[in-house]
Design a protein around this nucleic acid. Sequence first.
DNA 1: TATGAATGAGACTTCATTCAT
DNA 2: CATGAATGAAGTCTCATTCAT
Lengths: 175, 175, 175, 175
Amino acid sequence: MTDKQEKILKAALELFAREGFAATSTSKVAKHAEVSEGLIFRHFKNKKGLLEAILVEGEKKIKLLFAEVVMESDPKELIRKVLNISDLMLSNQEDFDFWKLQYKIKWEIEVYTEHKMEAVQLALGNAFRKLKYEHPELEAEFLLVALDGIATRLFLQDGFDPEGIVELLHSKYEV
Amino acid sequence: MTDKQEKILKAALELFAREGFAATSTSKVAKHAEVSEGLIFRHFKNKKGLLEAILVEGEKKIKLLFAEVVMESDPKELIRKVLNISDLMLSNQEDFDFWKLQYKIKWEIEVYTEHKMEAVQLALGNAFRKLKYEHPELEAEFLLVALDGIATRLFLQDGFDPEGIVELLHSKYEV
Amino acid sequence: MTDKQEKILKAALELFAREGFAATSTSKVAKHAEVSEGLIFRHFKNKKGLLEAILVEGEKKIKLLFAEVVMESDPKELIRKVLNISDLMLSNQEDFDFWKLQYKIKWEIEVYTEHKMEAVQLALGNAFRKLKYEHPELEAEFLLVALDGIATRLFLQDGFDPEGIVELLHSKYEV
Amino acid sequence: MTDKQEKILKAALELFAREGFAATSTSKVAKHAEVSEGLIFRHFKNKKGLLEAILVEGEKKIKLLFAEVVMESDPKELIRKVLNISDLMLSNQEDFDFWKLQYKIKWEIEVYTEHKMEAVQLALGNAFRKLKYEHPELEAEFLLVALDGIATRLFLQDGFDPEGIVELLHSKYEV
DNA sequence: TATGAATGAGACTTCATTCAT
DNA sequence: CATGAATGAAGTCTCATTCAT
């Protein structure tokens, strides 16, 4: 991966996250990356290819991130880790852009990629079972759904602070 | 509001909800509405004006819908009604499109319109207070956030069935 | 000529003079005249017809105006009257618009309508002959050409004051 | 400046001069220049930018042309040079188009650019002062105004021949 | 690898004109 | 006579993509 390739990916990530995929022109990406427009096509074939490259990179990053969560064997600790995922999304501008794009793109390219979360959901289900919850799979699914809701607010509601809600969840699950 | 104006609004709602605002051309809208393209601009000034007209109509519809929920004085009944909101989104194709657009557009036009839900959140907070919950406002906020998560799945995850989760929530809140 | 017809002509004169014929849409004229757009076409057939109606009215007005000048038999008095034509163009807003349009339209619809001035030129030539100028026809032509130059400045050069130049001409021709 | 850029400028100059700015479509310009329409916008941003590019080129050309006139120190020779400016406008088709556009555009884009002529007017004023004219500044202004009138006829009155009038002016100023 | 000129399709929009009421 | 909804052609401009250098 050359220097310019990375500059393109970085610029595209930022712009796609901020303005959306359809609304971002390749020329804007080129200007932002300080690169000729033609180069985008040489490296990524076409605009869709550029998006895919970003998402593939993203997939890797997410897998890596969740691997550590899924490995946790203590159920309460696992739930605690899941609850704290939203912190990761805010740690710095690049991560913020990255996660925002993951959420945003789902609404533009409508292929729900639930498989990314599948492993987490299974692990969570297992944790709830260990903790004797009555409907452990449903609990797991619900928790992830609720976290989706939190992420939505995080990226769309200006000034939204997740702390209170996350705290509430901690107490609900006694973790 | 003439016949053709309504046809335009209906077609635009459907297409914007399905393909997104930026990705839907006015010519596609015109063809879908069986109307000349120029007519869109005569009635709605420009593409953005068309979207706004849809959203204004939507605002009305939503206010009407929530008015009934908010008026409920029995706290358990109120929570029950809120939990069942997602049913409304699935009652028919037009409502489905309508609600999907409401959610989708937030990601394209990033102005979070939380005020639409404000009244509901207040009413919910009140209900939880009556029911002696420790953090009634947080509970209210959380419930709405979780419902946002459910709606997200509803519109993006093919084959998602909210029933289980909604049922789980009913039991959690003992309603 | 109905009330609305006159309103249309007046609005069109003003807009054509200010913005130009091609750059003024019939819808702008209709709005300015507080009249439906369709009415323009009922009365004047099409946009060009509207312009022609204005110009025909104009022709009449100009003929009337110049008739008086041409009738003058005293050569010095005739020249004096010609020199003062520019005053007429400034007497009020409507006359200003009227004359400006006459000049402006020549550049858009390139048919030089010298015949409007023909009678004046002949009379002027005659006057110069009586005054023993060596080239009376050329003198006449030149004077009208120079007045065209003055008019050009009058309508295009903001703040242009013709007084000095006109005064100079008076002294040159000893009138 | 690439080959095609020049072709565009040349075609636009010709068409704007002949048909007017508003009445010339960018597609006509593209066809005339044998170039894709998009290229116009790549190079000149928009239609107005194209016009501005033409006018900027023009400004340069005019400055160069007048520099030589203004430098003349002999007053009679200076006046003679000014009187002969109209010859330049007729030397070939491209110059004719160029000068016609300069005059024509003033009526469409109403910003009178008298500063272009300012230096000439000052030099002329000086010349008339040296020649002991009573009102040298007015004489200078008048001469330029009269030349504007001549140019107007040149471009609008089919078959107009300036020779007689220019000759008359030579004799009036004894140059 | 990298540039940026060039293209053609199609986007949004305006406009003169027609027509039912 | 008068309105304004409706149209279709044409206008300006953007965009993804290709290609010569």
